[in-house]
Amino acid sequence: MKGFHGEYEATVDAKGRFLLPGGLKKQLPEGESRFILSRGFEKCLTLYPFKSWEVIIDKINRLNDFDPKVRQFRRQFLGGATEVELDSAGRMLLPASLKEYAGLQKDIVLAAAIDRFEIWDAGKYKQLFEDFSPEAFSDLAKEVMLGLERGI
């Protein structure tokens, strides 16, 4: 498979843990239990299987340290990145600072994003789709896909 797919609901317990959904777990490489959890570009978290994270780190390592934008990007992107592992019950602990950043409450959604998953507060995730009309999605798809065809 070339990428993850789907949306999965989960519940965060009082200790800040959630059970990794079975449908998501089936898509992971055999035995994958280590992840990097970091701040997302929007107010969500990004969950990278360790192998996906290594590919991104290799790219970031090739960036020019003398460029102030590169340094700022690294701070923002890597600052909250935390290694997390599944416990023996298949649960993952959300660090309090990252949970607060994304405004995660009890109900969360894990949404596939090709090589990673985004973790959203369920209410905020639902609002994303309520605020985005089918027409706006059609326009966005056209713009993005035509840009892809043109090599932009």
Rank of each mutant, 00 (worst) to 15 (best):
M1H: 02
M1I: 01
F4K: 00
H5Y: 12
E9T: 14
A10I: 04
V12Q: 11
R17Q: 08
L19Q: 13
L20S: 10
G23W: 11
L24Q: 11
L24T: 13
K25S: 13
L28G: 03
E30P: 13
L37D: 07
G40M: 06
G40A: 11
E42M: 11
E42H: 14
C44A: 14
L47N: 04
P49V: 09
K51G: 03
K51F: 12
S52I: 03
S52K: 03
W53Q: 04
E54N: 09
V55A: 14
I56K: 12
I56H: 04
I57L: 15
D58A: 15
D58E: 15
K59G: 08
N64S: 03
N64R: 05
D65W: 09
F66C: 05
F66Y: 13
D67R: 09
D67C: 02
D67N: 15
P68L: 02
K69N: 10
A81Q: 01
A81R: 02
T82R: 02
V84Q: 02
V84Y: 03
L86M: 10
D87M: 02
S88E: 13
S88Y: 14
G90I: 04
M92A: 09
M92E: 03
L93R: 11
L94G: 06
S97M: 13
S97W: 08
S97A: 14
L98S: 06
Y101F: 13
Q105N: 00
K106C: 00
I108T: 04
V109F: 07
V109K: 07
L110F: 09
A111Y: 13
A112C: 04
E118S: 09
E118T: 08
E118P: 09
W120M: 01
D121T: 04
A122D: 12
A122H: 06
K124T: 15
Y125K: 07
E130D: 13
D131C: 01
S133D: 04
S138E: 03
S138P: 11
E143F: 07
E143K: 15
V144E: 05
V144G: 05
E149C: 00
E149F: 00
R150C: 02
G151R: 01
I152T: 04
I152R: 07
